[in-house]
């Protein structure tokens, strides 16, 4: 019976645990031609050079701002949508809307950004509409000051529907008797949402929040890489794109691995801290 877990176990060991050994590159002046065994050891030199790098400070600031905006707006959006759709009585209407809101999830980021370019770009429908009103040269896709909001809006548009699936599953486990009891006690529909639905969603929300906090320094590499040429590195450089440009494109493997290692450590600390906090606040936590 335990043989069934073998493929999953092999997958995780090969692709998640073995690559952890590559973190030694963070302590080396790594050269792909010399390999891990042949490269010179430099101790913490890569880490100290990160602290002195002004570009990384910009990347960390952008990452934290986008991450905070995603936690504040993109994370609760599926909960709100799931509660709203759950309030609809017509199953057919509910399924139609679910199908429509799931649709963008299946598109790659390249397609999503091309679509948004067609709507909010310089030659898009918004710019065309505003030019009829006498407002010219509106291009929200290349506006650095609007970029972080744009990133969050794109995430919400693409994944809000898909995110509702897990909350629908959680809502379906709430006993109908609780709603009936609340209604008998005089609770209206808002009161039932507040006192029955939201507490019913709390365990799954806490679990997803803990997992989300673990990837607080990961904010859509592909999405940001694709849009960086339009808005510039000042607005769109995040930790993941910094690692890509410095390590893969720039060949500075040691520094980019050191950044990746710090990111992993921060993510682990955030997950453990959030889990402990969740337990202290009275929920089960994740583990």
């Amino acid at each position: 019976m335990y043989a069934f877990i073998l493929p999953g176990l092999i997958f995780f060991v090969l692709f998640h645990y073995v690559p952890l050994l590559g973190n030694v590159i963070a302590f080396q002046d790594y050269s792909p031609y010399l390999g891990v065994t042949g490269s010179r050891w430099v101790g913490l030199q890569n880490f100290t050079s990160i602290i002195r790098d002004p570009e990384i400070l910009n990347a960390i600031t952008n990452t934290l701002i986008i991450s905070f905006l995603q936690l504040a707006f993109a994370f609760p959006a599926p909960i709100a949508l799931a509660i709203f759709l759950n309030s609809l009585l017509s199953e057919r209407l509910k399924r139609w809307i679910q199908t429509i809101v799931y649709l963008p999830h299946f598109l790659s980021w390249v397609i999503v950004i091309a679509l948004w370019q067609q709507v909010l770009g310089g030659a898009g429908s918004l710019a065309n509409g505003l030019s009829l009103l006498g407002i010219e040269n509106v291009n929200l896709m290349s506006d650095p000051s609007f970029f972080k909001v744009l990133v969050v809006l794109q995430v919400v548009w693409k994944d809000v529907g898909w995110g509702t699936i897990i909350f629908f599953a959680a809502i379906s486990t709430i006993s109908a008797e609780l709603y009936e009891s609340a209604a008998v006690d005089g609770a209206g529909s808002w009161r039932r949402i507040w006192h029955v639905t939201l507490p019913g969603l709390l365990p799954v929300t806490v679990m997803l929040l803990i997992l989300q906090l673990g990837s607080v320094l990961t904010v859509g590499f592909e999405q940001l890489l694709l849009q960086q040429p339009a808005v510039g590195a000042g607005a769109a450089q995040v930790i993941d794109t910094f690692v890509y440009f410095r390590g893969i494109a720039g060949g500075d493997w040691g520094v980019s691995t050191a950044v990746g290692l710090i990111k992993g450590v921060v993510g682990t600390v955030m997950v453990l801290g959030a889990n402990r906090l969740a337990k202290r606040l009275g929920t089960d936590g994740l583990f």
Binding site: I100, Q118, A183, V184, G188
Partner: peptide
């Protein structure tokens, strides 16, 4: 036990559905 929503609530729901569907489908 479920109360019938007021016409205002029903109109607000219809408006919300229209906005969600438009926002999702307009780019396509």
């Amino acid at each position: 036990w479920m109360e019938k929503p007021s016409p205002l609530v029903r109109a607000a729901k219809m408006l919300a559905i229209a906005i969600i569907v438009t926002l999702m489908l307009y780019p396509f």
